[in-house]
Design a binder for these strands. Structure first.
Lengths: 129, 129
DNA sequence: GCAATATATAACTATATAGTTATATAGTCA
DNA sequence: TGACTATATAACTATATAGTTATATATTGC
């Protein structure tokens, strides 16, 4: 990434964007333990089949998943396991942050003698900064 | 990422989203060789100062950059160099793909005895799949 | 205090896209 | 062939956000 031109930056950005969706991450996560068909992924994801298909189409477009139709079904699988490295890197950083957040929460609770039920308020406070 | 709940997935997705913008990648790239102030980043990015400030604010929110105001200026720097690992991973995958694309282009040109000027048509074709 | 500079924010527009429902397409089995 | 199942797509709505211009907020030096 020493001398990336604008076109390359757009390409990289689009790649990150493909991973920047909770539902798509959920699908990719579901494919960790092997291929699944659209029906299974629909059930796991908890949203409509149409939506899952659209996400799979996008993931396919970026070569993040492989598509193979067998009989009546279409099976999807991870195209390149190295995307999990990406996720792990991100998760590592986020884990640190979550722990930090939890620390803040604990301190907040201590300091204000709050009931755990009031955590929602704190969450809100943390979100808005 | 073995048992990520929905909240965690959202968190990871948001993190990727912070990196899913060409302009933000440009800024991060500009910070590779050390801190820069907003004015410098504005010049490098080629967009308005307001826009750069907004992007920096977002990057700051995700702890991707550090903020330090000295005198009249505000200097930003990379908070955690490991984001470049992420980018490198992505770039590696994209590089493969770009080369593949170029190969297709060459074959296409050969096969159709096209003039290089007609590359736009091919680009379009490749985009639409 | 006042002018000048640097950065941040508010208000707005335009665009992209996640999600929905309804429908089309393709494969299976009688 | 026709009913049935599985997947993909079209059309639409709602929402998020990148970018803009104009303005507010600091900070410096006079």
């Amino acid at each position: 990434m020493s001398a990336l031109n604008d076109r390359s930056l757009e390409y990289v950005a689009k790649y990150f964007k493909a991973l920047a969706e909770p539902m798509r991450l959920k699908v990719l996560n579901a494919l960790r333990d092997g291929e699944k068909n659209v029906g299974q992924l629909t059930e796991i994801s908890g949203c409509t089949q149409a939506n899952v298909s659209k996400h799979l189409s996008l993931l396919s477009q970026y070569d993040l998943v492989k598509r193979e139709s067998r009989g009546n079904c279409v099976f999807y699988s991870i195209a390149d396991p190295s995307i999990y490295e990406l996720c792990e890197l991100v998760c590592g950083q986020i884990a640190k942050r979550m722990i930090a957040e939890d620390d803040i929460k604990m301190m907040f609770i201590e300091a204000n003698k709050l009931q755990p039920q009031n955590l929602q308020l704190i969450e809100k406070k943390l979100k808005t900064g």
